[in-house]
Simulated assay, not measured.
Amino acid sequence: MLTRKQHELVCFINDRLDETGISPSFEEMKEALDLKSKSGVHRLISALEERNFIRRLPNRARALEVLRMPERPEKAARAKPSTTAAAPPPANVRAVPQPANDVIEIPLHGRIAAGVPIEAFEGSAMLAVPAALLGNGEHYALEVSGDSMVEAGILDGDYALIRRTETARDGEIVVALIDDSEATLKYFRREGAMIRLDPANRAYDPQRYPPAHVRVQGKLSGILRRYD
């Protein structure tokens, strides 16, 4: 037996999936149910999961699947038994495939320098990303500022899709946090007792820091580019 809010939420999610093929965001669910905070949505989602009405798709920040639906009283009241079999659809009419639920929203944490370091994680918004661009793990996005990674195909204004990790191997492109205040997107390399952050633009020089001054915040998983 579902509570009224649980019933409203699973119906809202199911209707949105039928209409668009994409799960509603937590903000949309909060507004649709007139809740005061997203924590209420999280509690309702967890309760519906426990009752096997919905499930969260793995490795996706915004993807829900409706496993079964509760009976809707208004539809049950209108339903009438029929002894006439429904006519099959015409042979020349093809079923329309449902859109794939393949869009993920990940946090967008401001701008990151592809040139000299700048402050990172300036606020937080969300960015819709095709699931095919992401692998396993937790991801976030940063807007690229600068041209020092152009020879790696990373341009000013691109969105760098970053998988969270605190480790990296030589030659990987990482988000490096310097002195816990500034971040940059560079190739990561160890050079003796130092960490070297290499640009992909011959007009820029490598940056060298003692290991205690550099923390890896993630490594590049993909690039999303807008064409205006």
Rank of each mutant, 00 (worst) to 15 (best):
R62L: 11
S145H: 05
A86C: 09
L108P: 01
N136S: 08
Y159R: 09
E71P: 01
R43M: 06
P81E: 10
Q98A: 12
H42Q: 08
M149Y: 04
F53P: 00
R111Q: 06
G123N: 12
G146T: 04
S82G: 12
N101F: 02
E119H: 15
Q98K: 09
V93M: 10
A100I: 08
E119Y: 12
A85G: 04
G153I: 01
E49V: 13
R164N: 01
L142T: 01
L48S: 02
R72D: 07
L67M: 11
E166L: 10
R56L: 05
R62Q: 12
L57H: 08
F53M: 02
E143Q: 10
G123T: 12
N52C: 06
E74H: 14
V103Q: 08
R43C: 02
D102A: 10
T83A: 13
E143F: 00
T83L: 15
A76T: 13
D147N: 14
A125D: 13
G123M: 10
V41R: 06
R60W: 00
E65R: 14
G146C: 05
A113M: 05
L108M: 09
V103D: 01
N101K: 02
K80M: 10
S82N: 10
T83W: 15
E71Y: 14
N59F: 07
K75V: 07
V41N: 07
R78K: 15
A61M: 07
M126Q: 14
I112R: 00
P81G: 09
K75I: 15
S148V: 00
P130I: 08
L108C: 03
P99L: 06
K80F: 05
G110K: 09
H139A: 03
L127Y: 04
E151W: 05
L44H: 08
P73M: 05
T84M: 05
R51G: 01
G115K: 01
M69P: 00
P58G: 11
R43W: 06
P81S: 09
N92H: 11
R51K: 15
S148H: 05
H109T: 04
N52F: 07
A85M: 06
R56M: 06
R51C: 02
A132C: 07
I54V: 09
A131C: 04
P89E: 09
E166R: 14
T165G: 03
Y140H: 14
V41D: 04
N52A: 10
P99G: 08
A87D: 07
G110R: 04
L57P: 00
E105K: 09
A152N: 04
G137S: 09
P117A: 12
S145M: 04
E105L: 06
I162L: 01
P58D: 08
G135M: 03
T83S: 11
S82C: 14
E119N: 14
N101Q: 10
P81W: 10
L134E: 03
F121N: 05
V96R: 13
P70G: 08
L133V: 01
R78D: 02
L108D: 02
L142C: 04
V144D: 01
